[in-house]
Design a protein around this nucleic acid. Structure first.
Length: 114
DNA sequence: GGAGTGACGCGGC
DNA sequence: AGCCGCGCCACTC
């Protein structure tokens, strides 16, 4: 038996990256939304953890991921303190006081990953 | 191998 | 109404 009842744990990160990559240009998503999309609603923290490891993945727009309040909680983890905000500004997303302006309007909810 | 941590989210006081 | 604490899941020491 055994075989593969459960997928490899590394796949968790891969799923996170897959979802983040689907975030459209000019939109943002949340850790919780991504966690739910991969079938782990309570793993929002782990999603952030995966983001930290996504630095080797240029295709993963980690700057488009914010917390449920639209705050750039992870901006401090980028190369520069303003890097995340700048990247968002490049996409037309305004940020004030580390908060995405019209967050609910910019928010993009990913579909559950199959 | 147990305990702590972390780019979160939610419930309780 | 805000502030505090716990849970979740993967990873490191």
């Amino acid at each position: 038996m055994a075989a593969s009842l459960k997928l490899d744990k590394s796949d968790f990160f891969q799923r996170v990256y897959a979802v983040v990559r689907q975030i459209p240009f000019g939109r943002v998503s949340t850790y919780g939304a991504i966690a739910r999309a991969i079938g782990a609603p309570g793993a929002a923290r782990t999603v952030g953890y995966a983001m930290n490891a996504s630095h080797n993945m240029p295709d993963v727009p980690a700057h488009r991921v914010v917390n449920r309040m639209g705050m750039l909680t992870g901006k401090h983890h980028f190369a520069g303190s303003d890097t995340m905000q700048r990247l968002l500004a490049e996409e037309g997303i305004l940020v004030e006081q580390d908060c995405v302006v019209d967050f609910e309007q910019r928010l993009w909810i990913p579909e559950p990953l199959i």
